[in-house]
Write a protein that binds this DNA or RNA. Structure first.
Length: 590
RNA sequence: GCCAACGUAGCUCAGACGGUAGAGCAACGCACUCGUAAUGCGUAGGUCGGCGGUUCGAUUCCGCCCGUUGGCUCCA
């Protein structure tokens, strides 16, 4: 993908937009690296969504202090204000030049280019293969910051040469750079790993193992609400709720193809000379439910839904809070239908996904993953399956990108990506069309004429996994959950034991009767301190009850983040919070 | 798995040329009985991530392991 940058020269060699600005900055960084590390080999240096990076081989790893000296050298290059020159060289000229300089990565890139002329940029002593455009002078770059460095692989191949990547950002305006830094700090405050501890939602435990989540009571409350919501929504949309075991005899995984194609992600165990695999997916179980008796076309589509907990081995370096774990629960369903019903079913799922994401207020991007290198079945069926997905997306007017080779091993998929606080995308909802598993398991139903036909399967998840979704949700709301999701919806604070008498107890029993998740803070601490604690815990409704309230049988209500309070009668208070606390009605499947 | 950084009390963090450690908040106790983001005083809390090595002595130096963080590769 990055090589595309070199594929053809840009329409104009020079420009001034933000992307160009970053691009020139990354060249300046490369120039500085080459000065400080003679013999440095530079590979590729594209811009990214925010900023840029460049990959190098300097014969050793970068150290934190290297970033400082590189920054200092870059400042010099800005000051020297080199003009940036553009040229078109023949491939042979360019190859000769870069090979002479030992720039093996550039030479490899040039060999892969289709045209005879290649686009070259030069600033001072630094020459790079680059499609451009660039700024006209290095001095035009004003404010920049190198952010981090890490290992990377040449051409994203972990068997290939290992490179060192440096990330950076730059802006014309000093304020913009300051704003960037401020935004990053802000995002850190929303980080679900930080809020997960602060709000006591969940924990990880190294004695238990990496990537395995412990839901504390508050996180469990949140998850419980989401599960209730999902169960109800699925019921409304014609899904049947099922349960299946967490492991199965290896024979099942051999039939499904997981043993062949997914083994490296699975946990296995052996007992009484039988091999068992812990489930990384729920589909084979749902298939066995389908197979439990003979089906008629009249029953189709059959939709089985499960909150299925799966375990996948993930390499230790990729684990990331709740967003990438080893054990997670999918809101997983499998739809068994006729091929003629496929498009309608996919459209139905897309609608479901859209309304759920709208309910939570997520923005998202959609991609279609096509046949991967490791796949099973007939490529012709893959094409039909992919067509069905694309057709449904087009029918719904949903913008999407094609991600070549990103499908599951049994079928192509629609992937919906959600963003975290730092703007990183995480796959959530997914819809996959599968002709293969029905074939491998010999699924069938009786058609109109009495003959046997094979159903098609749709694998789909609306949220994806509860863990990842909850992680995104925490960041999305910055922990300030709306009342219906809040682990603790209300806190009762008696001003003092004497002043309020028994009235707080009455309030609590009303809240209990209304099925509100509430607690009490009757510690012998100052009112101010207890209000502060409630705010820090991000509890949406605080009910203060003192003398005045007890007398008037009212409640003083303080909403999270609002200084102004409202005095409501006990009845109004409970009714008001009850209305807000329930699952949103009529949103899904109406 | 790869590259780098980090791991001290529940949380946020100090600290010592190697002589077994502190602060704030939280917790707990006592006093105060309080009106909307921190009342005061006190107490307790740590085999300084784990294992091994060097040393009279290691939390500090070295090695290995585990975990976390930022990326890479891979994925919900």
């Amino acid at each position: 993908m990055n090589e595309d940058k070199h594929a053809a020269p840009a329409a104009v060699p020079f420009a001034e937009d933000q992307d160009t600005y970053w691009h020139t900055t990354t060249h300046i960084m490369a120039q500085a690296v080459c000065r400080l590390f003679p013999g440095a080999k530079y590979a590729i240096g594209p811009t990214i969504e925010e900023g840029f990076y460049y990959d190098f081989d300097i014969g050793r790893n970068f150290l934190p202090e290297d970033l400082e000296s590189i920054e200092a050298e870059m400042k010099k290059i800005l000051k020297e204000d080199h003009p940036v020159e553009h040229a078109l060289w023949t491939k042979d000229e360019a190859l000769a030049f870069f090979e002479k300089g030992g720039q093996i990565f550039k030479a490899e890139l040039i060999r892969g280019l289709p045209d005879d002329k290649v686009s070259i940029y030069r600033q001072g002593e630094f020459t790079d293969l680059c499609r451009g455009p660039h700024l006209k002078q290095t001095g035009l770059v004003k404010h920049f910051k190198l952010l981090s460095f890490s290992g990377a692989y040449w051409r994203a191949n972990d068997k290939g040469p290992k490179l060192q990547r440096i990330y950076g950002i730059s802006y014309r305006d000093k304020g913009q750079l300051a704003e960037f830094v401020r935004r990053r700090a802000e995002a850190e405050k929303r980080d679900h790993r930080r809020l997960g501890v602060e709000l006591d939602l969940y924990g990880m435990d190294e004695t238990i193992g990496g990537g395995l989540v412990l839901y504390h009571p508050k996180g469990s409350a949140l998850r419980g609400v989401i599960e209730d919501f999902l169960k109800r929504a699925h019921r409304k949309l014609g899904y049947q709720y099922i349960y299946s075991p967490h492991m199965a005899n290896a024979n099942l995984w051999k039939i499904s193809g997981h043993y062949e194609n997914y083994k490296e992600n699975m946990y296995f165990t052996e007992i009484e000379e039988q091999e068992f695999g812990i489930k990384p997916m729920n589909c084979p179980f749902h298939i066995q439910v389908y197979r439990s008796h003979l089906r008629s076309y009249r029953e189709l589509p059959i939709r089985y839904f499960e909150l299925g907990t799966v375990y996948r081995f993930e390499r230790s370096g990729v684990l990331h809070g709740l967003l990438r774990v080893r054990g997670f629960t999918q809101d997983d369903a499998h739809i068994f239908c006729r091929e003629s019903q496929l498009t309608d079913e996919i459209i139905g799922v897309l609608d479901f996904v859209r309304s759920v994401l709208r309910l939570f207020g997520f923005s998202y991007t959609v991609g279609v993953g096509t046949r991967p290198q490791k796949f099973m079945g007939d490529p012709g069926l893959w094409d039909r399956a992919t067509d069905a997905l694309v057709k449904a997306l087009n029918a719904q007017g949903i913008e999407h990108k094609i991600h070549d080779g990103d499908g599951a091993f049994y079928g192509p998929k629609i992937d919906v990506a959600l963003k975290d606080a730092l703007g990183r995308s995480w796959q959530g909802p997914t819809i996959q069309v599968d002709f293969n598993l029905p074939q491998r398991f010999g699924l069938e139903y009786v058609a109109e004429g009495g003959g046997r036909e094979q159903p098609v399967m749709i694998h789909r998840a609306i949220l994806g996994s509860l863990e990842r979704f909850i992680g995104c949700l925490i960041e999305h709301y910055a922990g300030d959950f709306p009342v219906w999701l809040a682990p603790i919806q209300a806190r009762v604070i008696p001003v003092s034991a004497e002043a309020a008498g028994d009235f707080p107890k009455e309030v609590m029993s009303e809240l209990r009767a209304a099925d509100i998740r509430f607690d009490v803070d009757d510690r012998e601490e100052s009112l101010g301190k207890r209000i502060r604690a409630a705010e820090l815990e991000k509890i949406p409704v605080v009910a203060v009850i003192g003398n005045r309230e007890a007398q008037a049988r009212s409640v003083n209500v303080r909403r999270r983040g609002k200084k102004d309070q409202e005095v409501l009668s006990l009845g109004e208070f409970v009714e008001g919070i009850r209305r807000e606390a329930g699952l949103p009605e009529g949103e899904i499947g109406s």
